[in-house]
């Protein structure tokens, strides 16, 4: 189990390899990587609540381990100013079989969206910027886990 909040970019493939290195008890790893979308957005700045963020991510990860028989897991979330195409977030869940890994990875993302204190501010091409509003769909996605 590990959570990290960092400004540096991460290499999702290297993170996944490290998660399972030397392990023979893991039969499945599922991961999700979130990227900054371009289009009308020139950059995205992520603010967070140092201290609470790490606590919230650790609590979300612990809840995933309570619900599924996970062998390993990882949450990496970036903060600061990010450009289109850059990775924002990585979650990974490892277990003996695929079902727990798939479900736990989705659970980690759904809970992270609504319960981890991060805020996105979008910079548009015309130089204006705005804080991103929370989406009702994110609350719905979390609620499906009961």
């Amino acid at each position: 189990m590990a959570v990290r909040v960092q400004s540096e970019a991460f290499d999702a493939a290297a993170e996944m390899a490290a998660l399972t290195a030397g392990r023979e008890d893991i039969g499945a790893v599922a991961s999700f990587t979130g990227l900054v979308r371009g289009g009308a957005i020139r950059a995205m700045t992520l603010e967070h609540y140092p201290g609470m963020t790490e606590r919230a991510l650790a609590a979300i990860e612990a809840e995933a381990h309570r619900r599924w028989p996970l062998k390993a897991s990882l949450i990496v979330h970036r903060v600061g100013r990010l450009l289109p195409g850059e990775p924002i977030v990585l979650v990974a869940a490892a277990s003996e079989g695929r079902h727990a890994a798939f479900e736990a990875a989705a659970f980690l993302m759904d809970y992270l969206k609504t319960d981890a204190p991060f805020w996105k501010c979008e910079e548009r091409a015309d130089g204006t910027s705005d804080w991103v509003d929370a989406r009702e769909a994110d609350g719905t996605a979390k609620a499906r886990w009961g």
Partner: peptide, 9 residues
């Protein structure tokens, strides 16, 4: 702490 609804991920 006071803040808007969270928008990470």
């Amino acid at each position: 702490a006071f803040f808007p609804p969270m928008t990470g991920g």
